[in-house]
Design a binder for these strands. Structure first.
Lengths: 340, 340
DNA sequence: CTGAAAGCGCTTACAG
DNA sequence: CTGAAAGCGCTTACAG
């Protein structure tokens, strides 16, 4: 690889000191009252020689890497890949680069990735925390690692987060289904202690109770490790009981995997069972019966996560908890409309 | 952020020199014949103090960053997000981290990203080159930047690449459609000079000609910048002419966008028109008429790209061109089966 | 077997 | 307005 010129070489070619060059290139010419003429000369030479500072040296000296670490559960999942793209673009605007990793919802993996990213010298972390990671997050926060949680949060920790108003999202869904005349409404979720899922369940329960349908509440929990098999069991169970007119799937993956099952078993949507899912997906729109879903404001969520993080990094006294509980939007399509 | 202990502090706590510690922690104890006892003591202390080397300092000293840059067209596109995930995992195995960026098929953007990544000190690049980037790629190669092209390549450049055998992919499709009794077969592609697309077109033409159907060859080109509008025009055109019994879409995005159009216009697949697309997508499988598609060996493609790159980085005399033209697989589903 | 010293390329007090 | 010098944390000849 061709060697790039160093500051020293650039200074030598101009017959000035490295200090001067450094000052000018860091935009501090005014502050140090460098002559305009000299300033121009330096900048022109830097351009001419295609100079760009050695990042490792700058990092070492400044203690900053202008690198942020992002840990999502799986960057090949459309929900997270869309978010990652927005984070990347936003971080670039602030002159930061991003190191992405995927935790696969695994605690040990998450711990390991955090360690690796911190060792790489990232200035801060955006983390989609997995089940059981509350202690880890707490430790990071206590160690004053700039940190923003994304998509999920811990109510008991004073850690900033950028999330959906999950409770409201399932309220919207449930109320919509009730309006359509469905009463036997079930919900499918993961086995987890994470708030985002449990809030979604709570929003559903709340709306069911308010509608006087406490007895119709029906919750299926699926272990993410055996999602496919357990989805079969869960849906078979719901359908056998004849207990379900409508199903709410609480994540995108659950929705897609649920549709696979319903499809394979010739259960028609919405004729046999109405369906509402989470997060936009081409699959939903192109399905024979387009699927209603909760649309999250991904731009907002991702941009705010970056904003909060940069804010923490750059004003390090600023350790106050910043939170975003963004508004869900219910996109209604054929899958949840009662055919009359 | 909590300060991590330095090598010097670790050495001080052990009352030995930094040199010794460095040697031991870099696994060179044997080479320097450090006593086993001392070796163990150092390693234990490093663990105890949770020592990990400062990456910036190591990079500066070694001139290596253990960072590779990856430029895809859009990391939120499922095809590239899947590939990115595999690259990430593979790179980690080699103890490399990955900086991802998206070029949006834009040359200026690609140039800019290359510059940024190089300035960040990446040890090498995996690049999905866009239209018009041959000169850029040539320059990089001449500057001895370790470089592997992914998904697309330039036949005239001695640059390593990891790609699909594109010619063969559309041969497979065309032959399959011919076997099903379709003769009026059209193909939809981007306006581009890139080989991967033009090879796909060539494979189709080749099979059509071999079948004596030269006159039925029908190629629609779409400008990627106006994909949606032009897709409408192209398909309207094909259908009006009554000229098409089957359509081959040459990329995943084209396929999805084509299906949106056919859906909106109540054109039934395969009854009215048969369809074959590229790259697995949940959309295809869950569609009322599951879409046949070319499956690329993504694991292989991504892993080999990383292997080739690491090989270049670590054996820098090794500038020989390495190529992979991997085998396409045709997954046949309902969308291209003649209903008898 | 082990340590003192130089140097990677930068930035920033300090001095004038 | 400008420069000499120190130092960020590491590794690697060199010396013994």
């Amino acid at each position: 690889m061709k060697k790039r010129p160093s500051l020293k070489e650039l200074a030598a070619s101009l017959e000035v000191s490295p200090t001067l060059v450094s000052i000018v290139l860091n935009g501090k010419a005014k502050e140090y009252r460098i002559s305009e003429e000299m300033t121009k000369k330096v900048i022109a030479a830097a351009k001419e020689m295609n100079y760009s500072p050695n990042v490792a040296a700058r990092n070492l000296r400044s203690g900053k890497s202008n690198l942020i670490g992002v840990i999502v559960t799986d960057i090949s999942n459309p929900f997270y890949s869309t978010i990652s793209r927005i984070i990347e673009d936003r971080a670039n605007e602030f002159n930061y680069n991003v190191l992405f990793s995927s935790s696969d919802e695994d605690l040990d993996s998450t711990k390991n990735l955090v360690e690796v990213l911190l060792n790489k010298g990232v200035d801060g972390l955006i983390l989609v925390p997995c089940d059981g990671s509350e202690g880890l997050v707490k430790n990071l926060h206590e160690d004053d690692v700039p940190l923003v949680l994304l998509d999920r949060y811990f109510p008991d920790l004073a850690v900033s987060y950028s999330c959906l108003n999950n409770f409201k999202s399932t309220q919207l869904i449930t109320q919509h289904l009730l309006e359509q005349g469905y009463q036997k409404i079930s919900i499918v979720a993961y086995v987890t202690e994470m708030t985002h899922i449990n809030d979604r369940i709570a929003g559903y329960e709340n709306s069911m109770i308010e509608a006087g349908l406490k007895d119709e509440i029906s919750i299926e929990r699926i272990d993410i490790a055996n999602a496919k098999t357990e989805m079969h069991g869960a849906l078979k169970n719901l359908i056998k009981k004849g207990k379900t007119e409508a199903i709410i799937f609480t994540t995108n993956m659950l929705t897609v995997s649920g549709i696979y099952y319903l499809n394979a078993n010739n259960i028609r949507i919405p004729d046999d069972i109405a369906v509402v899912g989470f997060n936009r997906n081409d699959v939903f729109n192109l399905y024979y019966s387009p699927i209603s879903y909760i649309k999250q404001p991904l731009e907002l969520l991702a941009n705010e996560a970056v904003n909060m993080l940069i804010d923490q990094i750059q004003n390090d006294e600023n350790k106050r908890k910043m939170t975003l509980n963004s508004e869900p939007e219910l996109v209604i399509q054929k899958s949840s409309l009662r055919m009359i």
